[in-house]
Amino acid sequence: MMALLELAHVQKSFGTKQVLTDLTFSVEAGSIFGFVGENGAGKTTTMKLILGLEKLDAGQITVAQQTVKYGQNKTNQNIGYLPDVPEYYGYLTATEYLMLCGHLTGMHKSELPTRIKEMLAAVDLPQNKQRIHGFSRGMKQRLGIAQALLNRPRLLICDEPTSALDPAGRREFLDLLASLRGETTIIFSTHILNDVERICDQVGILNRGRLAVNETLVNLRQQFARPQLQLTFADLTSAQQAAVTLQVTEKVVQPQFSLPYQGASQQFTGQVLRQLLAADIVPLAVNQQQTSLEDIFLEVVK
């Protein structure tokens, strides 16, 4: 597999604030890369650097073996960009806006009309004289997808694309991204970890200006595996009694708590249940908890 996008020792600061200290990672062609980090961690800055919209302080970025240079756009012909809040000219129609985008990316005149019709149909937007001014939030987001994919880019960069969508719109959008798997490489920044778990092959966690983690989701789960047993009780009093019996040091404030363990789960579960029964406390439910990306994320940024 070849890396479509490579960042090497990228540094960027705004004034005295160092946003990216030493960012190095690569994204393989055809994969869906989930780019995760806290708000203000530098996700948008990284994306703008890849697009040549911001100046690098140090380091190098290459897209398809071509170096990205600020203010130049050779590399951008391969990239589709979906900003977090796409802003359009309200006085244009969707077709006119896509026409402008197509021309700017150097698409051939003859293929534009059919390609635009195709894209508008794909994102379920009307092909009429309605101006963008009257579009709803969701329609604008869908137009954003259409303009980003119009010239069949090899790399698609999405900046927090799902944060403003309702659950149904989010699901639709994620399905659309997933359908591009294999042909288009996707970088997808978000702080909604659920979205990443749903579609991403690889996860990068940005923390303190570096990529703290860059792994496949499967490997990540193994690496950070921290199995827990979740116990649920009828009321708080019995939960607290159980906590005393099991020598839980944390304060129990809910009729539910989790116990981390190591080793085989069956053995541990049996041991816990025996202890509880001996104290005449019966839990309502006993569940095995899988390590969620959220746990991993919190562990990493700790």
Binding site: L53, G71, Y81, V85, E87, L104
Partner: peptide, 15 residues
């Protein structure tokens, strides 16, 4: 201020 240029410049419109 409206941010309408970002997308076009990202598409390769020279400033």
């Amino acid at each position: 201020s409206q941010g309408t240029l970002v997308n076009l410049i990202a598409k390769g419109l020279p400033r």
